[in-house]
C-alpha cells in the first residue's frame, strides 16, 4: 500500500472565482482514515482555508455529506483505502447551490420540511399527565425505518428529479411525512394536500437512487411509492374519501 493518496478537492471561493476548480492535495493513506480524516489533514496541515462541514464523525449528525468520486457519501464513513491508489475526487453534494468549497446551501430542504408537517397530530392527545400511549413493537416497526433519516441530503443529491425540478418536495421530506403518517392513531390523510401534488409524490419517477444513496437504510423511494398508492386510493376510489 502506498504511503499517500491524492485528494482532488473542489474549491469555490466566491470572492475570487465564478466557478469551482479542483485542487490536489497529497494526504497520508492509512487503514483507518476516512475521506473526512484526509480533509481534516488538509485543513490542519496543508491549507487552512478549505471549508467543509463535519461534526460527530460517527455517521449520525449528517453534516459531512459530499460527492466522492461521483457518488454522494458521508465522508466520515467512506474510507481512503477503498479508493487506493487514488486519486479521490471530493466535490460538494450535487443539486445544491455551493456556498464555499464543499459547503452547500440546504435551506430549500429546511423550507420544505415544515410543509409536510413532520410532527405527530393525534386527535386523542389530551396532555402528558400520567398518560402513556401504548404502542406494540409491530406498530413501532411500521414506521421506525422512516424515522431513521438524519437529513444528510444524500438522497436529494442522488435524485435526478430534484436536480431537474427543484420544486420537488424530495425523498427525505416525503419519507419523514410517511414516518408520521404511519405512526399509530394518526391519519395518513392530513398531509394529502401537500404530498399528493405535482411537486409531491407524483413528481417521483422512481429512479430509486435515493434509497441506494441513503446511509441509514431509510428507503425513501419505498416511502414515496407507498404514499402514491395511499393517495391514489384516497382520490380515485369512491370509498377512499371516508
Amino acid at each position: 500500500m502506498p504511503d499517500t493518496i491524492t485528494l482532488q478537492v473542489a474549491r469555490y471561493r466566491p470572492e475570487s472565482e465564478s466557478a469551482p476548480t479542483l485542487q490536489e492535495y497529497e494526504v497520508p493513506l492509512r487503514e483507518e482514515w476516512a475521506v473526512l480524516d484526509g480533509l481534516n489533514y488538509v485543513k490542519d496541515h496543508l491549507d487552512g482555508t478549505l471549508s467543509f462541514r463535519w461534526s460527530c464523525r460517527m455517521g449520525i449528525c449528517g453534516s459531512c455529506g459530499m460527492t466522492v468520486n461521483g457518488d454522494p457519501a458521508l465522508t466520515c464513513g467512506t474510507f481512503l483505502t477503498d479508493y487506493a491508489p487514488g486519486p479521490v475526487r471530493v466535490e460538494p453534494l450535487a443539486n445544491f447551490p455551493v456556498i464555499r468549497d464543499l459547503v452547500v446551501e440546504i435551506d430549500d430542504f429546511l423550507h420544505k420540511l415544515p410543509e409536510v408537517k413532520p410532527w405527530l397530530v393525534r386527535d386523542d392527545d389530551g396532555g402528558v399527565d400520567d398518560v402513556e400511549f401504548l404502542q406494540t413493537p409491530e406498530q413501532l416497526d411500521a414506521y421506525k425505518q422512516y424515522s431513521m433519516c438524519i437529513n444528510c441530503m444524500l438522497c436529494y443529491s442522488a435524485c435526478p428529479v430534484y436536480g431537474i425540478e427543484p420544486d420537488f418536495l424530495g425523498p427525505a421530506a416525503i419519507a419523514l411525512a410517511q414516518r408520521y403518517n404511519l405512526a399509530p392513531a394518526t391519519s395518513a390523510h392530513q398531509r394529502l394536500d401537500v404530498l399528493a401534488t405535482d411537486a409531491g409524490v407524483w413528481a417521483c419517477t422512481y429512479v430509486g437512487e435515493c434509497t441506494r444513496a441513503c446511509p441509514k437504510g431509510v428507503d425513501p423511494a419505498g416511502a414515496i411509492q407507498r404514499y402514491k398508492l395511499t393517495a391514489a386510493a384516497r382520490t380515485l376510489l369512491p370509498w377512499g374519501k371516508r
Binding site: S55, C56, I60, C61, G62, S63, L110, I150
Partner: peptide
Amino acid sequence: VYPMRSHTVS
C-alpha cells in the same frame, strides 16, 4: 449548526 447536527444526536 443546523439543529439536527447538534451533538445530542450522538
